[in-house]
Amino acid sequence: MHTYIIAGIRRDPRFSPQHEANDEAIFRLTAEALRARGCTVREYTEADLWADAVSADAVFGMARDPRSIRCLQRMEDGGLPVINSSYAIARCGREPMTRLLTEADLPHPRSLILPTADDPVPALASAAIDACWVKRADGHVVGAGDVTFAASREATREVFRRLSDGGIRTAVVNEHLTGDLVKFYGVAGTDFFYAFYPTATHHGKFGLEQVNGPARGIAYDADALRTTCHRAATVLGLRVYGGDCIVSDTDGLVRLIDFNDWPSFAPCREAAAPFIASCIIG
Rank of each mutant, 00 (worst) to 15 (best):
L114N: 03
A128Y: 07
M75C: 04
I83V: 13
R110F: 00
S55A: 12
F275Q: 03
S55C: 07
A90S: 11
D251M: 09
L106H: 14
N260E: 04
R64A: 13
I246P: 07
I26K: 15
G237H: 05
Y241V: 01
R269K: 14
Y197H: 07
L112Q: 08
F60A: 06
F184P: 03
H108V: 08
K135D: 03
F265L: 12
I113A: 09
D223M: 09
E43Y: 04
V59W: 10
A53C: 08
G61F: 07
S126D: 11
D12S: 05
A266G: 01
G93I: 01
A127T: 13
E103P: 03
I276P: 10
A47N: 05
Y220E: 00
R239V: 13
A90W: 09
P17C: 04
G93A: 15
G217V: 03
E158P: 07
R74L: 12
L253A: 11
A104W: 15
S111Y: 10
V41E: 04
A277R: 02
D249Y: 03
F60D: 09
F275Y: 10
P274L: 06
F193I: 00
D165P: 00
A25Q: 07
F15P: 00
A144R: 08
A150L: 10
L80I: 15
R110S: 08
A56P: 09
I257F: 06
V235W: 04
L100T: 12
Y194K: 01
G189M: 04
A151E: 13
Y194L: 11
V59T: 08
F184I: 02
